[in-house]
Simulated assay, not measured.
Amino acid sequence: MGHGTRRRIQLGRLDLLEEVLVMGMRMADGISHKHWELFCPQMDLHEVFGESIRVQELLQGGQLILDDRGLRCSWNGLALLDSVLPTLLAELQGHRSLCEPESS
């Protein structure tokens, strides 16, 4: 018997951060600052998402919450998650160079 996994695909750092973002935002608790730091210690959630005009609109509209606990959707935001995620993913893509491993 197998273990259900055909093959493993090594994700790049940006791909991994996208997975962390998408999976984390599907949970009521969202993504904590500590959890995000494990994957991207170079930038915190406020630096990646807090300075974006498009994310600010989602925060002010009540779909997103970015505070000392981390980044998460409000209950209304969870219902609209499929329309919120593209904005967050676009912001993450815009910061891709800062989430790359430092070259020596």
Rank of each mutant, 00 (worst) to 15 (best):
V20W: 03
V22L: 12
M23G: 10
M23T: 14
G24T: 03
M25G: 09
R26E: 10
M27K: 15
D29F: 07
I31L: 14
S32Q: 03
H33P: 09
H33F: 06
K34A: 14
H35P: 00
W36I: 03
E37L: 01
L38W: 08
L38G: 05
L38V: 04
P41F: 09
P41A: 07
P41T: 11
P41N: 11
Q42T: 10
Q42S: 11
Q42H: 04
D44I: 00
D44Q: 01
L45Q: 00
L45Y: 03
H46E: 09
V48K: 07
V48D: 03
F49Y: 10
E51K: 12
E51N: 10
S52F: 04
S52D: 08
I53R: 14
R54K: 14
R54C: 09
R54E: 15
V55W: 03
Q56S: 14
Q56I: 05
E57M: 12
L58V: 11
L59T: 05
L59G: 04
L59Y: 08
G62C: 05
G62K: 11
L64W: 08
I65Y: 04
I65D: 05
D67F: 06
R69E: 06
L71R: 02
L71S: 02
R72H: 10
R72D: 03
S74N: 12
S74K: 12
S74F: 12
S74E: 10
S74T: 15
S74Q: 07
W75A: 15
W75G: 10
N76D: 15
G77D: 10
L78E: 11
A79V: 13
L80I: 03
L80W: 05
L81S: 08
D82H: 12
D82C: 12
D82W: 09
S83D: 15
S83L: 13
S83R: 14
V84H: 07
V84G: 08
V84F: 04
L85C: 08
L88A: 03
L88D: 02
L89W: 05
L89A: 10
L89P: 00
L89N: 06
L89G: 06
